[in-house]
Every structure is written in C-alpha cells, then in structure tokens.
Design a protein around this nucleic acid. Structure first.
Lengths: 353, 353
DNA sequence: GGTTTTTTTGTTAACGTGCACATTCCTTTG
DNA sequence: CAAAGGAATGTGCACGTTAACAAAAAAACC
C-alpha cells in the first residue's frame, strides 16, 4: 500500500458532510433559531424571512436531524409497538390503524415483534426504551416481571392491546379473549351440539399464546356451566397455530369417542386447516363436524363452506389506541387516569357450523 | 443534594428525571467514558470495574439514550424499510426476513408504508431521512423525481427490492416482475390455451401498482410473441387488488367473446376472487376457466381447487437484503459497486389450471 | 532496575438541535 | 410624545452520549 496509508488518501467517494441548520442559517443570513422556527412554527417567522430560509434549505438539500432535535426538545416522536408477529393479518391491521391515527400528529411507529416469546419481548423492550418512545403499545397483558418493572420505571404511558382480561399495567384497548371463548362455546351449545371440542397450542418454554389460552379457558368454563365435558379441549403443538396445526389436530379429533360434533379453534388458521383436512378425509363440514374459528381472517370467508368465526375489528382497535395515545400525550390529557376501552367482538355466522 | 432549583416550587406532576450516564458514573466512582465502554466494549474494561458499573446501572435503572449516542457516534442503528402496505403477507415476510438478518448486528428496522402512492412515498421518505437511517430499503424501482434526488443527496446506501426490471438507483434484490408475467403466459400457452386473459389494476392519480403492471407487460409481450391477442388484458379498479377486484372482474371476463379459456391475475387475491365468483356462478374451474395467480399466498393453497400461482420467496428476499446491507455497512465492504441479486421465481402448479 | 509496551481509565470537545430568555424594532395608546 | 405592548429575531446553553486524545497504572522486557 501507499506510504500515506496512515491517514489514507481520501477515498474517491469522500463522504460529504451533511448540511446542518447552521449552514442554512448562514446562507439565509439569519440565526439558527430562525431556521428552526421556520420549520417548526412557520407562522412565527415573517413571510419574506421564511422564504429566504426555505430557499436556502432546498438549495442545500438540508434535512433536519431528529436525533439532535429529540435530544434538545426531549421529544422523540416515537411510539413503540410490540407485536407477537407481523405475519398475521390482524396484527398488521393494528399497526395500520395505529399509524392512521398517529400520522396527523407526526408520530412515527417503532415496531418490534417477539414471536410470542416473553424473553424476546423483554429484549425488544429494552431496545425500544433506548429510543425513548413517548408511549408504548404492547400486545397482551402477560409480561415478564422484569419487563413490567422496566416499563414502570420508564415513566412512559403504556397501552396494552388485544387482551382485556387481566388487570392492565396501565391503559388498555382490546377485547376479552376469555369472553370470546365463552361466546364461541355458548354459540355452539345454542346450536344444539353436546360433544364439543376446542383446540389451541400448548405451552413450550416461554413461547405461549396467552390470548389463545384465555379463549380456551373461557370456552371450558362455558362448557362446564352447561354441564358438558371439557375432555375434548386439546392443547397441541407450538404457538402460533397454523393450517398444519389444524390438519394434524383434525386427526386427533376424528379419532375420539364419543364422536365429536363441533370444534372451536383458537384461530381461523387452525380452523381452516381442520376444514381442509376433513375435506381430504371425506368428513363433511358441518354435517359430520361443525367448525368454528376466531379472528375472521380473509381466507375464512373464501373457503367452502365459509368459516363461522368471531370477528374483532383490529384496525379500529389500532385507531382507538392511537386516539387514546394522542389524548394521553396532549398537555391537558395527562390526568393519569388509567383508561380501558373494549372494542367488543361479534360472531360471524357462516356455513361451517 | 441540591436539585437544579432554578424555578421555585416543583410542579405537582414533577416527572422524575431519568438517570443518565453521569449518574451511573458517579455511583460507580468512575468516569462517564468508562460506563460507556462497559456497555459498548465490555472487554475494554477491567472485570471488577465493570461489575461496579453494572451494579450501578441496575440499581439506578439506567437505560442509555440512543438519540444522544447517535448524535455523538454518528450512527443511528436504523435501517429504513418502505413498503406499499403491511397488510400483505408477502411484504410482511420481507420485513420479517430483513429483521432476522439485521438483528444480530443490532440494527432496528424503521418501517414506513405508502399505500402504493408515490406522493406518500416521498413524504414518508423525507420523514425517514430525518431519522438518519444507515441504509434505505425501498419497494419497487419507480419513484418520483424528487424522491430519487433526495435519496441520492442523502448519501445513504439504497436497496430496491421486489423489482429487478428497470435500472436500479443503486443496489437491488428481487426478481423480474416482467419475467413473472412472461412465465405465466408461457405456462398457460404451453397448457394449450389460446384465448388468454390477464387482469390487474388501473392507474389512478399517483396510486399505481407498478409491479403488477410489469407483470401485465411481460404477459402481453409473451402473448404477442406467440401470435395471440392481448385484447383480454384488463386493467380494472384501484390498487391494491383484492377478492372484490377478482369477483367484479370475473363478470367482465365471463361476458367476453370469444370465450376466454384461461386468466392470469397479477395477484393471488384477485385470482381467488375470480375462482370464488366462478363457483358462485356455476362456472367450473379449471374446466370452463383456468385461473392462475401470483404471490403464492396461503389461501391459494387452501381453496378448492387450489390455485396455480407463481411463488417468490419473500422471506429469503428480506434476508438476502439484510445480508447485503450488512456487507455494505461493514468497513471493508464499502466498495460502492452496485450489487444486484435475483431471487428468482417458480411456478406452483396446482388444480386451478 | 529502568525502560518500553500494553492495559485501563480519565479529560475534553464535539454531535445538531430547540428551549428559555434577551434584544430589537414596530405599533398602539392616552 | 413617552410609555407600554407586541411581533420578529437573536444569544447562550443544555440535551446525553462517544471519539479522540491524554494520562496513569500495570505488565513485559532486557
């Protein structure tokens, strides 16, 4: 290599320093503060001054650095969102609704997902907190002890979504998964079924679908209340459930005696898997086996017979969450009263029952 | 311990000041720099010192502020990802794969989506750039002039994904949508069909599904090459396409003379809509109308008959993108050579053709 | 034992912005 | 016309961290 290797000849692609607010102010012949104002509170700057500033900005290609702004203003503009996974249409809808509500106020969503693992949730949480979000949205109401402590210490508003059963850390927007299970059971009972099964995932290390588990619990309690057996409530496989889960669990269901007449799956994905496997095995749905799901995923409406399921408006859930956050962060809305919103759920009666 | 009692009585809701690295250093009896090192490069700090620091950190509940760190180190740890939408399983998979590849290197994903609008893309882009991402991943190869300028000026590596046709701004990971269209056409032609249709969305203001449009173009060219008519290539409705799109376009297709034998939809969603509408109308698939989709969405494999489609491994696409970014950002990998990776595509032959 | 090298820790000065306060320059008012 | 008030702009500094360099302590060497 060359003798001046120590300092290195400037590489061909010398990285040009990005223009700062100081460069803009110099070009526009104003103070930095005026530039800042021209961007943040334009009406506080006289029109011709503002025009000069704007011109300098576009000439230089100046783009403000929000890390610096955050440090100074102590406002990051981040809202943290923790989901189990992105590859679930309902959770994606939450993110969607949340963004819609938050966009107008110029907040950015910082999304993390934990694959249904509480350990991972905690790691992600630590990471998120380093970004100083102004509010944190968590899925579910079950967290590790340390996670809760971390959240509490952070002194940031926390909204738990999609599970209203247990006592929330602070605020909550969602529905009761327990109630969803009860609703499903009562629906099937009302239809005259007596040998009723339910399927969900089993717990494996720290990978748990607590929300699915809540649905099963509500389902079981409703069965008991009606004097029916809970022997057919099956916890099988690892979360999250899938078509394959449904297909493999269908085999178990169909082998049981006495003959199972109806089954509730904690997710449409699993329910659809069951329907498909039945089709493959020549078992008629709903005649031989009625199938009910949860989540109202698109494909449930598309299969044959279309799937009876429970619908929750996740997009609205996200929007309501966003609105709540805006209230919480508005100067007058900081009354610290824990808020709780139930978005409810509805049975979507279709052909599979 | 005197507080900074510049102003008199503390407000009722005095927000406890978060501990800073200075608080930690004081408690541990070391300099701030040592604390920083204990966190960033632990092996550079002697073990007992590190232990004291760690203890102080957990006692105080100290969480570093990355905005401050970013400002000083000029590294934000952000990778920006712009998607058309999150509520599309394939794009969600991209985010998933990308995160997987990036997690080990401690990068955070900053996700934005633009609803297929180029105006919105530009707004989102400006916003993202204020966060100083170290790399930017964009979906598609078509952007507004100003967006391209903004990107160029930002001096940040740009990776375009999911479209390999046009000349990329810089790096690219994806597949050729044009080729996907051609492949579909040739597949249908090889099956013996002659009256072949294709359906996609039409352009509406700046809301365009360019990738779908590319597929249609490839499809048309392959038809022409085979001496077949492109009269049945239909652009209908607004992007993104959906079941409803398929259902409504099915009516148009079935009314056409001469009788259309096969149809390719730019998305499985639309294709499934067509199949369902056919079912409703008593049109047999594939006997009366063969249907082919694109995207290999879950539900395509679940309907009856299962959908013949084109599969692209979007998760792998995300992972490859992540790996490329890691190379680009590694000190030795900055050779500035534009890179391009084709992840290819495969026809998934199922019952609908 | 004294020198050199290595390891460990400390000091100083940014990084780019916005808040709090100060100043200037105009209007308004009695 | 002096005093008071308001609008527009400027000054100084703090925000919390890390890079670069400096110094001290420990280890290695001859």
């Amino acid at each position: 290599m060359s003798s001046r290797a120590k300092h290195g000849a400037p590489r061909a692609m010398e990285r040009a320093r990005r223009p700062t607010i100081g460069d803009v102010s110099r070009m526009a012949g104003v103070s930095r503060m005026t530039v800042s104002r021209a961007l943040r509170t334009p009406r506080a700057v006289q029109e011709d001054t503002r025009a000069r500033v704007t011109k300098a900005i576009s000439r230089l290609g100046y783009v403000p650095d929000r890390a610096a702004g955050s440090l100074s203003s102590r406002r990051t503009g981040f809202i943290a969102l923790m989901l189990p996974t992105l590859t679930n249409a309902n959770f994606a809808s939450v993110a969607h609704g949340l963004t819609e509500a938050l966009r107008q106020a110029d907040y950015d969503l910082l999304i993390a997902y934990n694959e249904y693992s509480l350990d991972e949730e905690e790691r992600q949480l630590r990471n998120l907190l380093e970004r100083r979000p102004e509010a944190i949205v968590l899925t579910g109401a079950v967290h590790r002890r340390d996670s809760a402590r971390l959240l509490l210490a952070s002194n940031v508003p926390v909204v738990e979504i999609a599970d209203l059963t247990t006592r929330p850390l602070e605020h909550a927007v969602g529905f009761s998964n327990y109630e969803a299970g009860r609703t499903a059971a009562r629906y099937l009972i009302a239809k005259g079924f007596r040998n009723i099964a339910a399927v969900g995932s089993s717990t494996e290390r720290d990978v748990v679908d607590y929300r699915g588990e809540e649905r099963l619990r509500g389902f079981e309690d409703a069965l008991r209340l009606a004097g029916l057996t809970t022997d057919f409530v099956i916890r099988h496989g690892r979360a999250p459930v899938s078509y394959e889960h449904g297909a493999s669990v269908a085999g178990i269901l169909l082998g049981r005696k006495p003959k199972i007449e109806a089954v509730f799956a904690v997710s449409d994905l699993s329910a659809v898997g069951i329907v498909m496997e039945c089709q493959r095995l020549g078992v008629r749905v709903p005649k031989d086996l009625a199938v009910m799901g949860f989540g109202d995923f698109d494909l449930g409406g598309v299969i044959n017979p279309p799937l009876t399921t429970i619908h929750v408006d996740f997009r609205a859930l996200g929007q309501r969450t966003g609105q709540m956050i805006l209230e919480l962060l508005s100067p007058d809305g900081a009354d610290d009263m824990p808020r709780s919103i139930d978005v409810g759920l509805t049975v979507v009666a279709r052909g599979s029952v």
